[in-house]
Design a protein around this nucleic acid. Structure first.
Length: 499
RNA sequence: GUCCCCAUCGUCCAGCGGCCCAGGACUCCACCCUUUCAAGGUGGCUACGCGGGUUCGAAUCCCGUUGGGGGCACCA
C-alpha cells in the first residue's frame, strides 16, 4: 500500500508557521516513500472561518515549494478536500455509531455545560460530560432544565477505551481517557475528531503526522476507527515549535508564527525550509545546510526529536545570509527588486536605468544584509535623485562637523578633473589628497565625512565603489553640499541667539 | 487541579553502555583582515537539572524528584 499523508490546516487567519512545519515533514516522508501528500482544508469552525485564509495557505505553501498532490484547488480521486463540502459524507457514519450504541444525542445547553464544569472544578471532581442525556429521548430531556434544541451527538466512551498506541517518533505512548466528546455539532458540522477520522480513512491516509498537541485526543480517534471497523493509520506526533519562553508558538507572542511575516521581512524560502528542517530534526553527519531533496532522501522517523524546539531567529538570520550569498547576482537582484519598489526607490515597473543600477550595486550589498528588507537602506544613496537626497541626522552629527568641511572640499577638488571614473582611480585620488602626502589623515578618519556626504549614512557599501556607481557629477554635487552643510553648522554653533 | 508528553552549552542539534573530563552550528567575546558595515579566517566562554539505583563501566538503561510543555470546548 502506498504511503498517503496530509496536512490539514484550518482557515482561521494568517497561515501559521506550524502548518509549514507539518507540511515539510509530511512531504519529506511522502516523497521518500514515493507516496502522496494531500492538502485538506478543515473549515468546520464557522465562527472562526476567514474567507481569504485558504488562498493564503496555498500561497505560502507554494512559496516554500511544499506542493501537494491532491487538494481543494486541484482536486483528486478522494475529494472533496474541503470539510464543509463533506457534510453529507459524515452523516451516515454518525447514524451508524448511534445505531451501534457508540454515540447518543445530547440536548444540554452551553450554559448547563459551563455550569456543570464549574461545579466539577469547585468540588474537585474529574471533569467531563456527566451523561445527563444518556437514555433520554427528546421529550424527556425537554422537561429538564438546561435544554437546548438542535442536539449534538456525543461518543459514548466505554470504561476501558484503548489508551496506548505506537507513535513513530515516541514509541509506545499512552494518553488520557477521553470523555464523551461531541462528534456532531448542533449546526450539523462535524467536530475535528469525527472529521479527521472519517476523512483520513476515506482519503486513504496511511500516516497521520501532526503536532504533539493531538496526543491526548488520539484515544478518541482510536475508538472511532475501531467502532467504524477501519484500520488505524500510523501516528507520528511532531514536537511543537516554541516561543522564547518555551510556550507553544503563537501569533500573539511571536511575529514569526505568521508565515507572511517571512515574506515581508525578505527571508528566502529555501532558508526558511532548511531552518524548519533543522528544528527537531537532524541529518546524519551533522550536516546543517541541506535541501528538501537531501532531507527527504535521508528521512528517518528515528531522527525526529521529541523535544519542542525554540524558534530561534538568530540562526534563521544566519542561514538566510548564507543562502543569499549563494545566490547568483542576477538572482539576488531579482529577489531584491520588490523590496526596492516597496520602498519607493524603484518604479513599478522598473525602468532599464533602474535595473542597470540595481545590477551594478548588487555585488556591493549581497554580503551585507541578513534579510532582503535591509537592502533598500543600503542602496538608497544610489536611487535617490539629488533634489531629494538627504544625509541622515545621525551621520550629520557624527561626520559633517565643521572640522571636516575642509576634508570634503579637498575631496571634491581632488576628484573634480578625474576622467577615469572607476573605484580604483577614485580611491587613488582621494587617498593622495587626504592621506599621507595630502591632508595627512588616516583613511578611516578621512572616509567618514565622505561616506556621510555621499551615501547619506555612516554605514554604507564600500565608498570608492559607491562613488564610482554614483557617477562624477552626483558625487561632486554631494561632496560640495556636504562641505557647505558642515561649514554651516559652524555658523549655527557659534551663532544661536546671536543674530 | 488532573491526565499525558518531554529533559545535553543561552538557542538548535550530535550522542543511542566504554571511542565523551561530551562534538557541531547559531549567538556572544577576543584577535586577524579592513575605508564604515558585513562577509571571511583563527581562537575562546558555556551544558549531560537533581537524587537514587542497574552495571566492571552511564549523558546513554530503570525509579523517584524537580522543571518545562501540551490536553482536559458544540476550536482546530
Amino acid at each position: 500500500m502506498s504511503v498517503r499523508v496530509r496536512v490539514a490546516p484550518s482557515p482561521t487567519g494568517d497561515p501559521h508557521v506550524g502548518t509549514a512545519y507539518m507540511s515539510l515533514f509530511n512531504l519529506a516522508f511522502a516523497r521518500q516513500q514515493g507516496g502522496e501528500f494531500l492538502l485538506r482544508v478543515e473549515d468546520t469552525d464557522r465562527a472562526r472561518f476567514r474567507a481569504d485564509s485558504e488562498q493564503q495557505v496555498y500561497d505560502m505553501l507554494r512559496w516554500l515549494g511544499l506542493d501537494w498532490d491532491e487538494g481543494p484547488d486541484k482536486g483528486g480521486p478522494r475529494g472533496p478536500y474541503r470539510q464543509s463540502e463533506r457534510l453529507e459524507t459524515y452523516r451516515p457514519h454518525v447514524e451508524q455509531l448511534i445505531a451501534d450504541g457508540h454515540a447518543y444525542l445530547c440536548w444540554c445547553s452551553g450554559a448547563r455545560l459551563a455550569e456543570m464544569r464549574e461545579d466539577q472544578q469547585k468540588r474537585k471532581l474529574p471533569t467531563g460530560y456527566d451523561r445527563r442525556c444518556v437514555g433520554l429521548d427528546r421529550a424527556a430531556r425537554a422537561a429538564l432544565p438546561g435544554f437546548s434544541d438542535p442536539p449534538v451527538v456525543r461518543m459514548f466512551v466505554p470504561d476501558d477505551p484503548p489508551l496506548r498506541f505506537h507513535d513513530l517518533v515516541r514509541g509506545e505512548v499512552s494518553a488520557p481517557r477521553p470523555d464523551d466528546q461531541v462528534l456532531l455539532k448542533a449546526d450539523g458540522f462535524p467536530t475535528y475528531h469525527l472529521a479527521v477520522v472519517v476523512d483520513d480513512h476515506l482519503m486513504g491516509i496511511t500516516h497521520v503526522v501532526r503536532g504533539e498537541e493531538w496526543i491526548s485526543s488520539t484515544p478518541k480517534h482510536l475508538l472511532l476507527f475501531d467502532w467504524l471497523g477501519w484500520d488505524r493509520p500510523a501516528f507520528a506526533h511532531m514536537p511543537l515549535l516554541r516561543n522564547i519562553d518555551k510556550s507553544k508558538i503563537s501569533k500573539r507572542k511571536n511575529p514569526a508564527a505568521r508565515l507572511t511575516w517571512f515574506v515581508e521581512q525578505g527571508y528566502l524560502p529555501e532558508a526558511l525550509l532548511n531552518f524548519l528542517g533543522l528544528l527537531g530534526y537532524s541529518l546524519p553527519g551533522e550536516q546543517e545546510i541541506f535541501t528538501f531533496e537531501q532531507m527527504s532522501q535521508s528521512f528517518d522517523w528515528a531522527r525526529v526529536n521529541t523535544v519542542g524546539p525554540v524558534f530561534d531567529l538568530d540562526k534563521l538570520a544566519w542561514l538566510n545570509g548564507h543562502y543569499m550569498r549563494e545566490l547568483s547576482e542576477p538572482d539576488f537582484a531579482g529577489r531584491t527588486l520588490p523590496f526596492l519598489q516597496g520602498a519607493g526607490l524603484v518604479g513599478d515597473p522598473a525602468s532599464p536605468v533602474e535595473l542597470a543600477a540595481l545590477a551594478a550595486v548588487v555585488p556591493l550589498v549581497q554580503t551585507r544584509v541578513a534579510v532582503l528588507s535591509e537592502v533598500p537602506a543600503l542602496v538608497r544613496f544610489l536611487f535617490t535623485p539629488e533634489e531629494s537626497f538627504q544625509v541622515e541626522s545621525g551621520a550629520v552629527e557624527k561626520a559633517l562637523t565643521p572640522a571636516n568641511a575642509p576634508v570634503l572640499a579637498a575631496a571634491a577638488e581632488a576628484l573634480d578633473g578625474l576622467q577615469d571614473w572607476t573605484g580604483v582611480s577614485v580611491q587613488a585620488r582621494i587617498d593622495a589628497a587626504l592621506l599621507e602626502g595630502g591632508l595627512g589623515l588616516k583613511r578611516g578618519k578621512a572616509y567618514l565625512p565622505l561616506r556621510a556626504a555621499v551615501c547619506g549614512a555612516s554605514i554604507s557599501p564600500p565608498l570608492p565603489e559607491s562613488m564610482a556607481l554614483l557617477g562624477r557629477e552626483r558625487t561632486l554635487c554631494r561632496l560640495r553640499a556636504g562641505a557647505a552643510l558642515a561649514a554651516d553648522r559652524e555658523t549655527a554653533e557659534r551663532g544661536p541667539g546671536v543674530g
